[in-house]
C-alpha cells in the first residue's frame, strides 16, 4: 500500500507532475517534494492555520488533505502570492505594524488576510477577528495583525492616510 501514484497539479502557476504515496499530506508534499517551506505545519490537525494555502482560489488547510486529492487542481502557496505581488501591501503592513514576532503563523495569516480581503473589501474589526479565528498566533495578541488588515483595506479603497495609522492602535475590538 506504500506504492506511489502519479499526480498532476498546478502549483504557483507551474505544472507539477510527481509520484506520491497516497498518505502524503498536501503540506508535506509542498514542503518536502517541492521545497516550498513557506507553508508551515503547527498542529497537523486543522486547528492552528499555519499551513493554509489556496486551493482553486480558496483558503484550505494543507494538513487536512492529501496531495492526491489535489490532482488536477490549482494550488497557490504563500510563495506564489508573494512572487506575483498579490499580498505585497499586506506584507508591508505586517512589517509596519510589527504584526509578527516569531513569524511561524505569518504565512497562514497572510493567506487568510488575502482571502478575507478578496471576499470583503471593507471588513470591520469584528469581521477580521472572526476571519482570523482559525489562525493561532502565540506572540502578538492579534491586535497588530488586525490593525494591518484594516490598514490594507483602507489603502486599497484609496484612503492613503493609513500605513500603521496610530489611531488604530489599542482601539478596542
Amino acid at each position: 500500500m506504500n506504492e506511489r501514484v502519479p499526480i498532476e497539479l498546478e502549483v504557483n502557476g507551474e505544472a507539477v507532475a510527481k509520484y506520491v504515496e497516497p498518505r502524503l499530506s498536501l503540506a508535506d508534499f509542498l514542503r518536502e517534494e517541492l521545497e516550498l517551506t513557506g507553508t508551515h505545519q503547527g498542529c497537523e490537525m486543522g486547528a492552528c492555520g499555519a499551513c493554509l494555502v489556496l486551493l482553486n482560489g480558496k483558503a484550505v488547510h494543507s494538513c487536512l488533505m492529501f496531495a492526491v486529492q489535489a490532482h488536477g487542481d490549482h494550488v497557490e502557496t504563500v510563495e506564489g502570492l508573494s512572487q506575483r505581488k498579490a499580498i505585497a501591501d499586506i506584507q508591508q503592513a505586517f512589517h509596519n505594524n510589527n504584526a509578527l514576532q516569531c513569524g511561524f503563523c505569518t504565512a497562514g495569516m497572510l493567506v487568510t488576510a488575502h482571502e478575507l480581503l478578496s471576499r470583503n473589501t471593507t471588513p470591520t474589526r469584528h469581521e477580521i477577528r472572526d476571519g482570523l479565528s482559525g489562525n493561532y498566533c502565540r506572540c502578538t495578541g492579534y491586535q497588530a495583525i488586525v490593525d494591518s488588515i484594516v490598514s490594507v483595506a483602507r489603502s486599497r479603497a484609496g484612503n492613503v492616510d493609513t500605513p500603521a495609522s496610530p489611531g488604530e492602535r489599542g482601539t478596542a475590538s
Binding site: K58, V60, H61, L64, M65, G134
Partner: peptide, 12 residues
C-alpha cells in the same frame, strides 16, 4: 453557518 468551525474549514 458562521458558527461552523473556521473559514478555511468551511471551504472544504
Amino acid at each position: 453557518a458562521p458558527f461552523v468551525a473556521h473559514p478555511a474549514i468551511r471551504n472544504m
